[in-house]
Each structure stands twice: as C-alpha cells, then as structure tokens.
Design a protein around this nucleic acid. Sequence first.
RNA 1: GGAGAGGUGCUGGAGCGGUCGAACAGGCACGCCUGGAAAGCGUGUAGGCGCUUAAACCGCCUCGAGGGUUCGAAUCCCUCCCUCUCCGCCA
Length: 424
Amino acid sequence: MLDKRLLRDDPDVVRRSLRRRGHDDAVVTTFLALDEQWRASATALDALKADRNRISSQFAKAKEEGEAALRALREHSTELGRQIEAREREAAELEQRVDELLEGIPNIVSDDVPDGPDASANRELRRSGDPPVFDFKPKPHWDIGEALGIIDFERGVRMARARFAVLVGDGARLSRALVDFFLDRDIAAGFVPVNPPILVNRESVKATGHLSKFSDVMFSVEDGKLFLSPTAEVQLVNMHRDEILEAEALPKLYVAYTPCFREEAGAAGKDTRGLIRQHQFEKVELVGICTPSDGPQIHERITTQAESLLQALELPYRVVVLSSGDTGFASQKTYDLEVWLPGQNAYREISSCSSCGDFQARRANIRYRPQARARPEFAFTLNGSGLAIGRTLVAILENYQQRDGSVSIPKALVPYMGGTQRIE
RNA sequence: GGAGAGGUGCUGGAGCGGUCGAACAGGCACGCCUGGAAAGCGUGUAGGCGCUUAAACCGCCUCGAGGGUUCGAAUCCCUCCCUCUCCGCCA
C-alpha cells in the first residue's frame, strides 16, 4: 500500500509509475477526488461528534437541575445522533472506496529499473559460469528423471492431480540434500531459521500483497479464512506484523524452508511438462526487515547470498533486473537469478529478489523507532529465494547429466548425499 | 470435539452506564539529590486519522474484533476470534 500523502502531495510520481508498469493512471485522479470527499465528510462528522461529546459531559450536571434540563439535553443529543448516523454512513462508504483504490495500486517502480512492457525488456546485469558443453544432445530433466526413476509425474497425478509430481529414491534424497545445504549456508550467513505454519490467514496474505483482487493465485481452505501459503515470504514478513521494533533490533534476517502452493490459474499451457511449474513446490526463502537507509544494502545481500548458492553448486546463471512492466505488485525493484537449463537451452528463473520499500510494511503495519521516543516509521521489507528446491534439482539434472543417462552430484553436495557422487 | 474461566496501556492490575485514553503499582526516560551509585523526590511515558507548509495546539477514533441497546458503552446484550484449565482424541 502506498502512502496516501504521496498521492496527495506528489500524484505525478504515482501516475508515472503506473504508466511505466503499463497500467492506466486514471485511478490516481479518481483517488484524489474521492479522498477529497472523504476528508470533507470525515471532518464534518468529527465536528458533529465533538458537539455530542460536549453535550454528553453536561448530563451529570443536568441531572441535578431537574427533568426539564435533562429532556432538553436528551433531545439535542438525539438530533445530533441522527445527523451523525447519516454522516457516518457516507464517510464510511467513502473511506472504503478510497481504501480499495489505494490497496489496488502497485508499488512505485524504482527509477533505476529499465522501462519496458514485459520480461523482454529485462536487463542482464551479469553472468556467472559457462553453460556446459555436451558431446551429445542434452535431455530435458523430465526425461532424465523418469529414466532414472527419481521423478514420477504419473503417480503425482494419481495422488493429487495435474501439476503434482513425486520424487523417489535419489530424487527425494537430492531434494532433501538441497534443503539442508541451503539452510546451512543461509544460517551461516546470518539468517535466522524459522519453521512457520503453512496455512496463513487473510490478514497475512493481504499484508504481503498476495490478496489483491487481480492475483488470485492461492489455494484456500476453511471457507477462504485460511490459505496455503504461496511463498514463505508471507510468513516471514508477517513475523513482525503490527509491531513497533527498536532500531537496534534491525535488520531482521530470516530464512525458512517451506512447501509452497500456487493455483497457477493464469498459466494454462505454460511449462506443462516437468517440475518447473507445479502446484506444490519447496523453497528456501530469505526475508529482510530493515530501516529505509539499509534497504539497498540488504537487497544486495539477499541477492548475493542466493547467487553464492548457485556458485557453490557450480551452476551457470545470470542476474537480470526486471523491467518496469515485469516488476511485481509489491516490489520497487526485482533481481531475478536465472539458471542455465541445457534441456531448454535457456536461462530460467530460480530466484527472485525483491525490494518492497515500505509498501508491505505499511500494509502489515511493521514499524520501528528511528530513535528512542521518536515517532515510529514504517520499516522496509526485502525478500528473495535462496533457492527454489525443485528448480535447483532440475538445473542439477540438466547441467550434470552424462552421456550414459546418469547424473553426477555437484561436489559441494556430495557430503549432503551421504557420499553419493552419481545418480544412475 | 465436550465443560469451565478469561481477554484493559510496555507489564501487573482497578474500573456504580456519563466528568475514563483510563486509578494504582511496576518498568523505562529525563531532572534533582550524590564524590559515584542505591534509596528518595519530581516530571514524563500509546497509537491512528483529520487540521497544519511542518510542528505544537485543537478535534475525532482506539479498553480482543464486529454488531446491538441507550441521549451516552471499557462497563449491558448478541456473534465471532484468541488465551488458559479439565476431559476426550491424536503425531
């Protein structure tokens, strides 16, 4: 959620950001008009309430003065009550419309984000490692996995439905190894491990911006009261919802390993084969909560932490900064880490590291005190995957595949595989 | 799932339906006192919205959440949520 004052004082900043995202900026003008009406209505309402409060305080005295005085007060108060009721309805409705508009406006995209309508305008920042050279035609991971008997797509469908898969044997083991490997390294880098609930409530998903009207990507249970978390970003950002933190307590750096669930309703026909886009997947997530001045530094820290995992696994990747049109609803600026997938002959997203400024903190009401006794201010929130387990597994199968169909294990991972150096 | 108790400020804990954003105590901050400290004394100590160039001032709102009764609700009624105790079930 943006600051109302930003819209009032600097509406053109918001309009420009909306246009850069490829949205209509008319919502800003609508907001300003409604906000104006709401403030006028609320001010009038407050004045009426002030009148009534003044009269209420006279009742005690009037009781001693007798029935006539009481009746006069009562009548006056009743009349004010009628006016208040009418005003209140009006003000509440206006406020609700203002809030709905406000909640639907995406974060301001950073100035240093490249302009562009979609992913085609994303800008590559750097590359690490060279794509492996094969003396045979590299296979996609679904062929490798099925041939080795470590990924079973059919049984996943049998147990659940399409876009669910089963890992078996060394597949399950490799997945576990990645979780442990990532957690160990993230914890060593200063992130505090968290093991959160997987079901989250409405307030929590609203706080991170996952419940905006336009993106209904979540599975829900209990009549929509609870959701299967689409990313541990939700849980970790909500660690401090409705709290006022002392400045010394910041930054808060968290890491959580969780399953994630996404409906993927808008992705029909996309990545239908393989593990890339599943309804259920596992992920190790990094989240930072910090002061505004620390924001850029923590964003880089999360990004380089995620990169270090790919480097340790010796997987080739590149870092891109998302264009204005591709940047997510709550984000000001997002770096995607894209790992090389020989089976697709392409770089594919394996981590997304976003800086949300105070956008989520305002929704989540996460504040901190710059100095003791100072007025609280909204914190900044940052998040990034470190890393997506399924996609990392895919990358390993495709990059480490051998001519004979076996897959070697990255050196750093061998201890986590009980010494196993090869899946065959 | 069944039975009961309860949700008030940073904490504990009061609160005949009006003068209660809320006694009192503790904590914390600042000041006095002191060679320094403790004790003691004094002062202060929520958040949001509106108004304001900004702040102060001022006004409104907030005693788990939402409704209701009433001229008026922390206080009465209803619904929901949460916590605790006991029983049942269970990894």
